[in-house]
Design a protein around this nucleic acid. Structure first.
Lengths: 231, 231
DNA sequence: AATTTGTGTTTCAAGTGTGAAACAATATGA
DNA sequence: TCATATTGTTTCACACTTGAAACACAAATT
């Protein structure tokens, strides 16, 4: 099955375009060219046209794109015309913070509930969001039409939680636990690893010349490292 | 200047290796082979050896890697042997959540302070972290040896904040504001866009067949889209 | 009707990352 | 001493993404 696959980089850009279009709508503009869009990012116009052309012909030759129309099209393509219900698993610091954060953004994502295994937490309400027992996840997910799960539990529990969530029929999962997870490929898993991001920054700070490390590999250095090993 | 550049993907993997090595140390193992490490992730062993070889010869032929030694080496390479002081700009929901979150992880990153422009917030303490006036950022950064900044302000203010932070000499910035930012290239900027991540999940849900979109581009469909445009 | 603008689309080159394979070098153990 | 294990390193092919260029085509303007 040789299907034209849309890369994630492309859909990420669509997301950026959409955000920009929303700004343009509030600015009151009517049309925008691929070149006009390109200048807002650091992309070239051909890239933008290519991205959009994957999904249809939205532009008008000689004119550009009708902003509101393109916005609506992208909204549909990204599946943002209907509301998504999000479950956050793990009512610890990160989980509750995310519940608080997502709950108040003016997006199409609304937090349906927090889930935890700790009986002390179950039944509490944090920022208007109730904490449920993870054991009841499947039922509540069905009842509340939850379609997105966010994993915010400690790393050792993440795989188990992911399996429970997948078992309940959730097809889109965002993982904040700092550990690689495995999942059937009909489930989309997106891991955001804040630790890796921070450590990557740390690496940059540790390499003042901007990640030139050839010197570390020089012979003298290698030998020195070698000797240390022998100790 | 043709310096051997280490890709960010490589340093990200180093971060993952390090995490794994820490686990192995607590498990009490002494050595591990590249093959043994590879099985823990979904990588092949050559990749791991290649990644490590950028920085020196850490392994022992016929034996593998001495776990504690490799852990120490990676810790140094990633610059994690010394503590990093983090400033979080924006004492809103996300900022305070991150302060709370980072403050309690057992990493080498500690939160030095929150910064905001809202005079009502300044002087308050949240989870043991004081909120300072962003105007005093440069002084406090110097005093407290802050070397990492986290931007958690609304998108329209992010660029301005970034410039202030860079002006104060900060070389590593993590941005949570959903907007692209520009910065001198002696500053390392890492943007984590949770909105894009969520919308990318939404796209997946909207394309049930797993991102096969060739049908969207079929002629009949194109014509239909075209007609809608004409309305 | 001619010109201009800007999309839709194709093509090619370049850069990057991955995977697999191969092999010399070296440490361990029998 | 010899066999075995495993690293360090190179090489090649493959896939993916981007960038740039080119051009037909359609719409708007004059």
């Amino acid at each position: 099955m040789k299907s034209e696959k849309i890369s994630e980089l492309t859909t990420n850009r669509l997301s950026v375009y959409l955000r920009c279009l929303n700004d343009l709508v509030t600015e009151g503009a009517k049309t925008v060219s691929s070149d006009g869009l390109a200048k807002r990012f650091h992309l070239n116009s051909a890239q933008i046209r290519k991205d959009l052309a994957y999904f249809g012909e939205f532009g008008v030759r000689g004119v550009g794109y009708y902003i509101e129309n393109l916005r609506d099209q992208l909204t549909k393509i990204l599946g943002l015309e209907k509301e998504h219900r999000v479950a956050i698993i793990g009512a610890g610091r990160l989980g509750t913070a995310l519940a608080d954060y997502y709950g108040f953004t003016q997006t199409n994502f609304s937090v349906a509930g927090l889930f935890d295994a700790d009986s002390k937490k179950i039944g509490q309400t944090i920022g208007g969001v109730e904490i449920f027992d993870i054991k009841n996840f499947a039922d509540i997910a069905k009842r509340d039409k939850i379609d997105v799960a966010v994993i915010a539990v400690p790393a050792p529990f993440a795989q188990n939680v992911l399996e429970q969530v997948a078992e309940a029929g959730i097809k889109a999962v965002m993982n904040f636990a700092p550990t690689p997870l495995r999942v059937e490929n009909d489930v989309k898993l997106k891991t955001v690893d804040l630790t890796i991001s921070l450590e990557s920054l740390s690496y940059f700070l540790a390499q003042p010349n901007g990640s030139n490390s050839k010197n570390l590999k020089s012979n003298s250095n290698r030998r020195r490292i070698k000797q240390v090993e022998k100790v």
